[in-house]
């Protein structure tokens, strides 16, 4: 029996060969950042935080609508002249746009690849269904798709003016947004989208903190509080503009 024991152990270990990387043949750090699930989540976390930072600035900028057309339109002109005279006209704005496009693409590609992987990892559902996770958590994927579609419409509406209802005037955001929020569908699309932003940020900010390794047991409550506050403030700030147009506060 004694002589058999090692053989038995070896057989048990050798039932299936170990797949994957052999020691010493590890992929390069950049490679593993993109190939590993944790690396891809890191891409999502960083790109998400970049977009979140932009959203906060955008929301604060939108509040200029409450100070009248002159201030709002002057702000729109400033966005083109910021960085001058070091940078050429609109360079700073284009830099922001390039970073944002990179963030959106990185976020979406990672999300798509991770989602495909996740669905493949759980091909068979349980027969006994029960509600899992919070609403914000469960709606991350659909919420993300809604937001991507919204961004396309939003740019075509208020940046290029392609699908703008009424006369689109470049550098007159005050008048333009009143046009959009004077249509029922403009209000509906916008309010649905910014509600989706709130839900997405609520789970996304906290998740980003976990992915970047900032979260720990002691910081749990603080991180959740920041996530909820950001979500609420962003949604309320964005929603205030169409509501102001609808109620006639802004006209």
């Amino acid at each position: 029996m004694r002589s058999l024991a090692p053989t038995v152990i070896c057989m048990a270990l050798a039932t299936r060969p170990v797949k994957g990387t052999a020691p010493g043949k590890r992929p390069s750090p950049a490679r593993s950042l993109w190939d590993s699930t944790i690396g891809k989540k890191t891409v999502m976390a960083v790109s998400g935080l970049i977009m979140l930072g932009y959203l906060v600035a955008h929301m604060i900028g939108n509040l200029k609508v409450f100070f009248g057309p002159d201030e709002m339109n002057a702000y729109a002109r400033f966005l083109r002249t910021m960085g001058e005279p070091v940078l050429h006209h609109e360079w700073a704005l284009w830099l922001v746009r390039i970073v944002l496009v990179a963030a959106v693409v990185g976020h979406a590609v990672s999300a798509y690849q991770l989602s495909r992987r996740d669905i493949k990892a759980r091909p068979q559902k349980y027969v006994h269904k029960r509600k899992r996770a919070s609403y914000a958590t469960r709606t991350m994927r659909w919420g993300g798709i809604i937001l991507a579609l919204f961004i396309v419409w939003h740019i075509l509406d208020l940046t290029t003016g392609t699908v703008h209802p009424g006369e689109f005037e470049h550098l007159h955001p005050y008048q333009n947004l009143i046009d959009t929020f004077s249509t029922w569908y403009g209000n509906v699309i916008y309010i649905v989208a910014v509600s989706a932003v709130g839900l997405h940020v609520r789970h996304g900010f906290w998740s980003a903190a976990q992915t970047l390794g900032v979260g720990n047991a002691r910081r749990e409550r603080l991180l959740k509080l920041i996530a909820n506050t950001l979500a609420l403030v962003l949604t309320l700030g964005f929603v205030s503009v169409p509501v102001a147009v609808m109620t006639g506060v802004v006209s």
Binding site: T37, K41, D118, K120, T137, T211
Partner: peptide, 19 residues
């Protein structure tokens, strides 16, 4: 690095922090 690499190679999904 190796344990996470093996975990990914085994076909487990990624974490979405559902808890």
């Amino acid at each position: 690095l190796d344990m996470v690499g093996q975990m990914d190679d085994e076909g487990f999904g990624g974490c979405t922090l559902t808890g």
